[in-house]
Amino acid sequence: MFFLPRLMNITVVVFSSSLVKGLAAFALALGLVGCAVSAPGHEDLAANDAANTAREAALSAATAQLLFTPPSALPWQPFALPGKRYEVFEPVAVQARPALRVRAQSSVSILRRQFEPALLAPGRLAFSWKVDALPLAADLAAADAADSPVRIVLGFEGDRSRWTPKMHRLSEMSRLLTGEELPYATLIYVWGNQEALGTVVVNPRTDRIRKLVLDSGTSQLGVWRDHVRDVQADFRQAFGEEPGPLRVVALMTDTDNTRSALTAWYGALTLEAAAPAR
């Protein structure tokens, strides 16, 4: 099933319904589907509100200390997908290293920043991640098993006249459902189960989403993995064209398709604008 309904507001962490639309389009492109979740009862709402306010404040402070990007009118914010279990990003310290932890349980957790205005030329991206396990039998090339314990997601603008008719239909569906079109192209850095390092995996539902494997297999479980990437060079490798402006950057941990449980940590992330051409 490729269709995904409109994202909804949640109260567990900082989340704004006005921002749902941006990455809802991105999430639609990822083709995420899953089981339904139940809403809290009325008796739980008062207690939830107090806990959620504390979580919101802690997460806001942590993102300000850990996640650095060029300026945007919009902050880092988590969001949930309808029909998906959502596990929160928790500020923690791991071996005196500040991080955001996700305890995944057959879930999809996303924390994103949308750029307004779009970042015209992304440059260097540095980040770190750590995981204690991999999703069971995950396969990045299989639509029904394409889970990954950690992802860094980049959504780009571009020349939509180059899209296939299918992509135009999907984007129009997204616009009708969410108010926003799909990103022109999405590049995702991933940790795979078995794919060779440096492999570019094309999403089975659309070739406008491509994954670049930076870590793979179990040999580095429990170890911080630090990466520094040239975003423009990686986009050229993955798509064979120049990148357009960057619309969104996101952290994403998903284990829903494989019904897996694991813990993922994200360390500091720094995204820089490319230096002006001389």
Rank of each mutant, 00 (worst) to 15 (best):
L119C: 01
S128Y: 09
G244Q: 08
R208W: 12
D226Q: 15
A274G: 00
S107E: 00
R6M: 14
E241M: 15
G217Q: 06
T270A: 13
L197F: 13
R162K: 15
R97K: 12
Q95F: 08
V108Q: 01
N203Y: 14
D139M: 10
D132R: 06
S128V: 11
A274M: 06
S171N: 07
G217C: 03
L125V: 08
S18L: 01
A264E: 04
V94E: 10
R205Y: 13
S128K: 07
M167G: 03
L23T: 11
W76Q: 08
V228E: 15
T255H: 02
Q232M: 11
W265E: 00
L30F: 10
W163I: 05
E116T: 04
L197K: 10
A133P: 09
I110D: 01
V228I: 14
D159C: 11
L4R: 09
W76G: 00
V88Q: 07
E241K: 12
P204N: 04
P70W: 06
A274V: 09
D254Q: 15
P75H: 08
I10G: 13
L140A: 07
E87D: 13
R169Y: 13
R247H: 05
V213E: 01
A196F: 05
E90F: 00
P149Q: 04
P75C: 12
A118H: 05
G83T: 03
A268S: 14
D254I: 00
A57I: 11
P71E: 01
D234H: 06
V190T: 07
R85F: 00
Q194I: 05
V13L: 15
F239M: 10
F79K: 07
R259Y: 03
V33D: 12
T255M: 04
A104N: 09
V213P: 01
L170I: 01
P71N: 03
L187V: 07
P165G: 05
T11P: 03
R97S: 14
L81F: 02
L262P: 01
D230T: 08
E172M: 12
L67K: 01
V14C: 13
A261Y: 03
G198H: 07
F89I: 05
S260I: 12
S109K: 02
E180S: 08
T253N: 02
L32H: 11
D207P: 15
G240A: 08
A62P: 13
P70T: 00
